[in-house]
Every structure is written in C-alpha cells, then in structure tokens.
C-alpha cells in the first residue's frame, strides 16, 4: 500500500492552479513588504514596550503640560504632562490585544463551525446557518455596547464580547469559502481512501481555505480596532489612566484647540496600522485570487 500516495500528496491542494498561485505569491511588490514590516514593528513594540526604556506612560509631570514635540518627548506631552510617545506604544497593547484577540476567538469558533457546516451539510449546516442568520439580524453594536456597559470594561472582557459577536460573520465567510472546495475531487478521493472527517477538514480543506481566512482575518482585525476606538469614545473601553489609541483620541477632544498634537499622534498610529492591515489583506486576497462573489 505504500506506493499509493495519500490524496494530499497525489492531488495537491490547489490542483492545476498551484503553480500560478505560487508564482503570484512572490510577486506582491515592495509596498506589501513595507507595510508588513510596519505591522511587525508595531506589534513587537507593543509586546516589548516595557523593555524599550520608555517613560512611564501614566506618570504625569506638571512642569511640562501640553507641550509640542521636543527631543525629550518626541510626540510631546498631554494635559497631565505624560509622554505621548510612550502612551501611543503602550496604547497599541490595548488596541492590538482586542483586535487580534477578538478575531482569533471568532476564527477558532466561527471558522471551525463554518468548515464543519460546509463539509457535513445536512441538519448541522441548517441549524448553525439559521442561528448565524438570526445573530446577524440582531443589531450587533447594540449587543456589544449593552454587554460591555453591564459586564465591565476590562480588556479581556471586551475582547471576549467582540470575539463572540464576530462569530456569525466569520462563520458565514469560512463556510462560503469551504463550500467551493467541499465537493471537489480531491476531497472525494480522500474520502474514498477512508480518511476520517477530522483529517479531511484539517489536511484537505483547511490549507485551501487558509488564504481566504488570512485576508478576512486582517481586515476583520482592522474593523475591531475601530470598534474598540468607538467604545472608548463612549467611555466603554479600558478606563483611564490606561492608554489605548481610542482613549487617547477621545481624551484629546477636551484640549483640541490648545494642543492639536494630542489628537495627531494616536490618530496617525491608528490610521497607519489600519491602512497596513487593509492593504496587506487586499493584496493577499487579489494575489491568492479568492473569489469574492462566493461569499
């Protein structure tokens, strides 16, 4: 039996189109790598913020209130004399944790359900799909605001709430992406060789759906970062003095006319990061040719 290759070997995941996809994959352009580098730098700075020798983000200094950028304080200081550069980097922690964390929760639960539903079809699919339609019809923002308002503003609670709210959407996207592969020949081949459902989902379907998932993941993270910012404006994100990009932009409104630097730097940090996420997601999607019409 050893001379019979497994379905995964004999019929490569991207039958026929794999060569094209590979050739295209290397041809993403310089812009792609610049923005990937930017995301990497932001993520690393957020993770290792405490090792960077920054000033304490919550330590005020009443001698230097509302200063513009100086050599000592690159981004200037805020209304309590805190270093804005340090706050922007520490603030990235909150925005990134909520963004990546929530989408990861949504991906793990919604993505798994989506692949199972698309592969098994039948009653499982009908039940989960109907549930997702009902959840999608419910005004999600209302639910998120209500639950955050009552349950609490800790960063892990916000992450879980938004993560759960993202499940139905992730489910629909992953299900649609999986559907187009679930009836293909290489799946039938694997089945006829006696592969278990688990093996087919993880080894045959998952690698094919991955490109669609990655680009949706990145664009989803961008939307969640925006949502966290919106919650901050309603006073429903992490509480001051903890910095988050949304918090900082929201707080800057009070001193808008005296000190426009307050709004500039956290906004730039957020917008650059969002542009990078959207752009990478978009380039990946068009390069790996995920058909949007199937969603």
């Amino acid at each position: 039996m050893s001379n019979i290759p497994t379905a995964a070997d004999s019929i490569p995941a991207l039958t026929g189109s794999s060569d094209i996809a590979k050739k295209k994959r290397f041809d993403v352009g310089l812009v792609f790598w610049i923005f990937t580098l930017w995301i990497a730098i932001t993520v690393l700075a957020a993770i290792f913020a405490s090792l960077l020798g920054l000033q304490d983000p919550n330590q005020g200094n009443y001698d230097i209130l509302n200063q513009g950028p100086t050599t000592a304080h690159w981004f200037g200081t805020d209304d309590l004399g805190r270093d804005i550069f340090s706050r922007v980097i520490y603030g990235a922690r909150v925005s990134l944790t909520v963004g990546f964390g929530a989408l990861t929760i949504g991906m793990i639960i919604g993505g798994t359900l989506g692949m199972i539903a698309a592969y098994r079809r039948g009653p499982v699919d009908i039940i989960v799909s109907s549930a997702s339609y009902v959840m999608l019809a419910f005004p999600a923002l209302v639910a998120v605001i209500a639950i955050v308002a009552f349950w609490g503003h800790e960063i892990w609670k916000i992450t879980i709430i938004i993560g759960v709210a993202s499940i139905p959407l992730v489910f629909r996207v992953v299900r649609a992406a999986t559907l187009s592969y679930a009836t293909r020949d290489f799946v039938t081949a694997a089945k006829s060789q006696g592969a278990t459902d688990w093996r087919i989902i993880t080894k045959e379907l998952f690698p094919n759906v991955l490109p669609a998932i990655i680009s949706f993941y990145l664009i989803g993270v961008a939307s969640v970062i925006i949502l966290e910012g919106a919650l901050a404006f309603l006073g429903l994100s992490v509480q001051p003095p903890t910095a988050s990009w949304g918090n900082m932009i929201s707080e800057s409104r009070t001193y808008l006319s005296q000190n426009p630097w307050l709004v500039l730097f956290p906004s730039l940090a957020m917008v650059f990061f969002l542009v990078a996420l959207n752009l990478i997601g978009d380039i990946l999607r068009s390069t790996l040719d995920v058909q949007e019409s199937q969603l």
Partner: peptide
C-alpha cells in the same frame, strides 16, 4: 477606508 469615523469627526 482606514480612517475611523471618530478620528474624522475630531479632525
């Protein structure tokens, strides 16, 4: 597309 509405309002 990457500019959140709240930043736009403040600006």
């Amino acid at each position: 597309l990457a500019i959140p509405p709240f930043i736009l309002i403040v600006v």
